[in-house]
């Protein structure tokens, strides 16, 4: 057997194993092919609206003495956080991403910080769809919900990536602050946009 014969044999074998499984499955159909009525239609199946998780926000620490005497702004230690959203539904309905912060509580005592404000500054890193504008300078106080990005109908399809930089938490002056480790939950909620009429 010559080299070229060896190669062609190998190529034939590779072609055989390289045939997509879907093609083989399609061939097993029992329906006879009608030459007069060849079907050219096909179906595109939509899937989900989903997002990927990203790492928690950690902030620099400060002395209780400073918070007792004046307002303090703590900055996120990580320079950047990214959040990716995938709209693979194929419905063009649009979607909304919102954020809700819980009370900020001390790990052991359960004491809460009074009137903290979390400031989020999202920017669009990448997006398949055009004309998306995340809200700027989003201020979250405990238990309030704020929209981060509202995507109208016929936009926001495919992949969208948001970048969060310069995230801060501002704690107003309070004489009764407890020293300790504070945590809060930051809930990110993704929802499809529903059609709403004007007032009647």
């Amino acid at each position: 057997m010559t080299k070229s014969q060896q190669l062609s044999g190998l190529l034939s074998f590779l072609l055989l194993i390289g045939t997509p499984l879907t093609t083989l499955a399609a061939d097993t159909s029992d329906k006879p092919i009608d030459p007069q009525k060849s079907t050219t239609g096909f179906e595109i199946i939509g899937s989900n609206l989903q997002f990927s998780s990203f790492s928690d926000f950690k902030f620099e620490s400060d002395k209780a003495e400073n918070i007792i005497n004046h307002e303090v702004t703590l900055h996120s230690i990580d320079k950047e956080h990214t959040l990716a959203i995938q709209d693979y539904r194929g419905t063009h309905e649009g979607w909304t991403l919102s954020a809700t912060m819980s009370n900020v509580t001390e790990k052991d005592s359960g004491r809460t910080i009074k009137q903290p404000t979390l400031t989020l500054n999202p920017t669009l890193s990448t997006a398949d769809s055009q004309k998306l504008a995340p809200n700027k300078n989003i201020r979250l106080t405990p238990t309030t919900t704020q929209p981060v990005l509202n995507v109208a109908e016929n936009s926001g399809e495919g992949n969208t990536q948001l970048s969060f930089t310069n995230t801060t938490i501002t704690i107003p002056k309070q004489y009764d602050i407890s020293a300790g480790t504070y945590t809060a939950d930051l809930k990110w909620t993704l929802a499809p946009i529903t059609k709403v009429d004007t007032a009647q």
Partner: peptide
């Protein structure tokens, strides 16, 4: 809502101020 603690929260013993991300999807 995803109740699974985030990875950084599971591993953390830090004393810094911490915001735990939680993820939720809603169907109206």
């Amino acid at each position: 809502a995803d109740l699974t603690p985030s990875q950084s929260n599971q591993q953390s013993n830090s004393t810094q101020f911490h915001l735990n991300n939680r993820f939720a999807e809603v169907t109206p």
